[in-house]
Amino acid sequence: MTSTDATCVSSATGPLAGLVVADFSRVLAGPYATMLLADLGAEVIKVEGPDGDDTRGWVPPVRDGVGTYYLAVNRNKRSIALDLEDPDDLQVAHELSARADIMIQNFKPGGLARFGLDFDAVRARNESVIYCSISGFGAAGGAKLPGYDLLVQGMSGLMSLTGAADGPPFRAGISVFDVMTGLHSVIGILAALHHRDLTGAGQHVETNLLSTALSTLVNQTSAYVAGGVVPTRMGNAHLSLFPYEPLRTGDGELIVVAGNDGQFRRLAAAIGRPELATDPHFDTVGKRNDNRERLRPLLLDALSTKSAQDWFGILTDAGLPCGPINTVAGGIQLAEDLGLEPVVDVGDDVVPTVRNPIRLSRTPPSYRLPPPALDEHGADVRAWLSTPREADRG
């Protein structure tokens, strides 16, 4: 099924071109998911309240009066402002939900039922819809809990793992579970679309931040559920690998990784201490972990003889994973230097955005529309909804 026509369609040619997404989400998890869908060609109609997405005003930083937070996750979308308390606007929302291939929302569980925009109500008017609900803690016992990423970082256990061993817990530098939940939502939506292609049936996709957190804590949650071990903060150290952390050199820190015994042998040779690789205290991963406090000063002593940049070259030439600790600016510059072209300019007014990380050889992501102003496309969307469904063609 395709749901677009010339009244409200971009020039997208990606793998999802022709699909319409009714985006009733705001802030981060939902908007990130819908931007990824839009980059791949979907026509995303961003439904905002009269005051707009909260992140428009999350400043500083700011560009041309708009928060860069909003700009980060809203390109390739069209905005329509709807007050769901207004009967006429609510009717527009109903019509949009009836015409969309995909609807995504991150209201509290049950929050859209009074507007007739919950899954059951939308399915009654659009039986093939893929309807994605994003929440903080699921639709059962956690339905009333507000879904803020910081809360989930704390309540999931992530903060108990982040920070110095003898210091306070810290949040991650980004809203990590919002982003990961957005990614999981896209995976669920694409899986549901494939099933619909085979059967014609829509379905309800549900994701939540806490389940995402527990899944993406991977080895840490497995340490507890499979091993009975409650992990704790270790600073930059790794629970199961050493070295796998920043180590001091002659003039600063360098991240040094030896993920297996072969890499450790190459590391020992590269730093001029080949005997460490055959030392019975250090010759296996488990022994290096058990004796890391004995091994660390030996590595630091060897690394102190040269600068971080010198060791970066030496260890890289030896085929070892290592790297400096950059600022965000340094990370962007590194990607530029490596030919990854991390920044793409969008729109006539040129809004710099970060490139979609997915590379497709035949149907690559495209960058058609800058993040929209509030209700910038309201008239276009309303005009499209007024056309007969028979006119719908991708």
Rank of each mutant, 00 (worst) to 15 (best):
G167R: 11
A164D: 13
G202Y: 04
A201K: 15
L239E: 15
P146H: 15
H204L: 07
A139R: 10
H194D: 12
T212Q: 00
N208V: 02
R233W: 07
E206Y: 05
G173M: 05
I187V: 08
T232A: 11
G167E: 14
I174E: 09
S185R: 02
L145T: 15
A143I: 03
M155Q: 11
A165F: 05
V186C: 00
F242E: 03
A223V: 06
A237N: 10
T199H: 04
K144S: 14
A201T: 13
L145N: 12
Y224R: 06
M234F: 11
T207I: 00
R171S: 12
T162S: 15
G202F: 09
F242W: 00
D149Q: 14
V152H: 00
A213W: 00
G157D: 06
V152Y: 02
G228Q: 12
V179I: 09
G138I: 08
P146N: 13
G141V: 04
S175Q: 10
T232Y: 05
V205F: 03
R171G: 11
A192K: 04
K144N: 15
A213S: 03
V218A: 13
L183M: 04
V225Q: 07
S156H: 07
G235I: 09
G182Q: 08
T207W: 00
H204F: 05
L190N: 04
G167Y: 08
K144R: 13
G173I: 08
A165Y: 04
T216C: 03
L198Y: 06
T232S: 14
G200Q: 02
L161R: 04
A143H: 04
L209F: 04
M234D: 12
L214A: 00
V179N: 01
S211E: 13
P169H: 08
M180I: 02
L209D: 09
D166L: 10
A164W: 09
G154A: 15
T181A: 02
S240N: 15
V225D: 07
S156V: 02
G173R: 08
A143W: 02
I189L: 02
L145I: 15
V230A: 14
I174Y: 07
M180F: 01
